[in-house]
């Protein structure tokens, strides 16, 4: 299980479209060998098919696909967009933070989501993620196991 480890976080991503942003966040998962490249395409296909429903809260998008689309290990990456990107969500646009979720069928998937919820259910955490200068600055709010 990989939860926002150092190599899964990029605080300075320049993306000009939702697909570009999803691809950048997914690429971190692929580079860490948590998902196959096909999984990134599956996340983008899901966006095209189901729309931006995964923009779950103001400025937050959590793209994902199905475990069988190419997940090797339950993992979550995060990118912060230099310029906010409009995903087409009626309430939560524009998106500033994109968390790519490698959804597995294991218990780890549940643990991963619980940690993500602990992180994102507090507004001050989100404000901090929008402002931090370095990965080091994020550590206090990432939480333990």
């Amino acid at each position: 299980m990989k939860f926002l480890e150092r190599d899964l976080v990029d605080l300075n991503v320049d993306a000009d479209s939702p697909e570009h942003a999803i691809r950048a966040a997914g690429q971190l998962l692929a580079d860490a060998d948590a998902v196959s490249p096909a999984y990134i395409n599956a996340m983008i296909q899901s966006y095209r098919k189901n729309g931006p429903y995964f923009v779950l809260a103001p400025h937050l998008a959590i793209p994902h696909a199905r475990p069988e689309d190419g997940v090797k290990e339950a993992a979550i990456s995060m990118i912060r967009l230099e310029k906010p990107v409009v995903f087409g969500h009626s309430a939560h646009d524009p998106v500033r933070l994109v968390f790519a979720l490698g959804a597995s069928t294991s218990d780890e998937h549940l643990m991963l989501l619980k940690r993500l919820m602990q992180l994102l259910s507090r507004k001050e955490h989100i404000d901090m993620l929008l402002k931090v200068q370095s990965y080091q600055d994020m550590l206090p709010i990432l939480g333990g196991k």
Binding site: S46, K49, N50, G51, Y53, F54, L56, I62, H64, A65, R66, P67, L101, A103, H109, L110, L113, L116, M117
Partner: peptide, 11 residues
């Protein structure tokens, strides 16, 4: 309910 039934709906 979410689009895929994997992540979002579980949250």
């Amino acid at each position: 309910v979410c689009g895929l039934g994997q992540g979002t709906s579980l949250i």
